[in-house]
Amino acid sequence: MTERWEKERASWILARAGHRARARRRGEKLMVAARRHDRYEVGAGDASFGEVTTRNAFHRSVMREEGAANIAGWFCLTVLSVIVLAVLVGPALLASRIAYGTWWAMVPKWGPMFSPPYLGLAALLGGIAWLALGRLSLEGFEGFLVQFGAVQVVLGVAWAAWLVRANGWAAVARRQKQSGSKVERVSIEIPVVGSVEPVVVGAPQSAPAEPEASQEKTPEAAPTAPNIEPIEIEFGIDDVEHVNATQ
């Protein structure tokens, strides 16, 4: 599974969510993904219980008040609002998800996501669309559709820049910036008692050279037998008589 820093992003979002339910839901979903990633790494499989997260926007809008009549009224109003938003900014919403999802899928190759590239691309597309529409000078319903489509594309790419920050990628950028500072290696000379040359800490030391073995080997001396002198035992006359008596 590819690392996308879900835990760091979730902590960053939840720390700044406050009372905003949408932000809390994004942070909780990222935390669920982080725990799933940890279970996958250790081979524990899926959790045996369901993860509890904040309800989505549609559910929160419908279930504002108790009672069947209130729920039905809020349901109709919510559906009507969704239809109006889909007509006004639906293509922009789709373009933003496509732009965000493209980089999200390419994170292993492109690295963490940043907002400035999306903002620059939106400005570039806006300039191209403005120049193109000025030269084409379309009129009527066709001109309206072309202008509406250009606005939706530019707005969608700019919306993707907001999605990058809303999903906590600023925490990844800050973490990499903090860990990017390199610590230089410092060498300290410490004199060692009994040695002439100082020892440098942090520098590789060469192993002492072993004495070269002489090519000519001296023949080993043959083992000699130990020189044992004979032992002389003297017997007296009394000793001989004593031995004969015992026999």
Rank of each mutant, 00 (worst) to 15 (best):
residue 186 V to R: 15
residue 159 W to G: 11
residue 91 P to T: 03
residue 117 P to K: 07
residue 62 V to E: 04
residue 167 N to R: 13
residue 165 R to V: 12
residue 186 V to L: 15
residue 66 E to C: 06
residue 171 A to P: 11
residue 59 H to W: 06
residue 169 W to Y: 12
residue 87 V to M: 11
residue 134 G to V: 00
residue 167 N to E: 15
residue 133 L to D: 12
residue 60 R to C: 04
residue 72 A to S: 06
residue 130 W to T: 12
residue 171 A to G: 10
residue 131 L to A: 13
residue 190 I to F: 10
residue 151 V to F: 08
residue 118 Y to V: 06
residue 169 W to K: 13
residue 103 W to Y: 00
residue 153 V to T: 09
residue 117 P to W: 05
residue 178 Q to W: 13
residue 106 M to F: 03
residue 161 A to M: 07
residue 193 V to S: 13
residue 145 L to M: 12
residue 182 K to S: 13
residue 89 V to K: 04
residue 127 G to A: 14
residue 169 W to F: 12
residue 102 T to V: 01
residue 142 E to P: 02
residue 120 G to T: 09
residue 71 I to G: 00
residue 123 A to F: 05
residue 64 R to A: 13
residue 179 S to G: 13
residue 142 E to G: 14
residue 61 S to T: 02
residue 63 M to H: 07
residue 104 W to P: 00
residue 118 Y to E: 05
residue 65 E to T: 04
residue 168 G to R: 09
residue 102 T to H: 01
residue 160 A to P: 07
residue 69 A to G: 05
residue 89 V to T: 09
residue 74 W to T: 05
residue 176 Q to V: 10
residue 113 M to C: 06
residue 163 L to T: 11
residue 156 G to F: 07
residue 170 A to F: 10
residue 103 W to D: 00
residue 107 V to M: 02
residue 159 W to I: 08
residue 61 S to N: 14
residue 168 G to I: 11
residue 82 V to M: 15
residue 128 I to D: 09
residue 131 L to I: 07
residue 126 G to C: 12
residue 79 V to T: 10
residue 174 R to D: 15
residue 71 I to Q: 04
residue 61 S to G: 08
residue 122 A to T: 09
residue 73 G to L: 02
residue 179 S to E: 15
residue 79 V to G: 02
residue 91 P to A: 03
residue 190 I to V: 15
residue 118 Y to T: 07
residue 193 V to W: 08
residue 116 P to F: 08
residue 72 A to H: 01
residue 136 L to P: 03
residue 162 W to T: 13
residue 104 W to Q: 01
residue 193 V to N: 10
residue 65 E to V: 03
residue 175 R to E: 12
residue 162 W to D: 13
residue 78 T to N: 00
residue 150 A to S: 14
residue 173 A to T: 15
residue 124 L to Y: 04
residue 138 L to H: 01
residue 154 V to T: 14
residue 162 W to F: 14
residue 188 I to D: 11
residue 61 S to A: 14
residue 141 F to T: 08
residue 186 V to F: 10
residue 144 F to T: 06
residue 96 S to F: 01
residue 95 A to T: 04
residue 82 V to P: 00
residue 104 W to C: 00
residue 70 N to F: 03
residue 147 Q to E: 09
residue 186 V to A: 14
residue 85 L to Q: 07
residue 77 L to C: 04
residue 76 C to G: 03
residue 111 G to E: 03
residue 106 M to C: 02
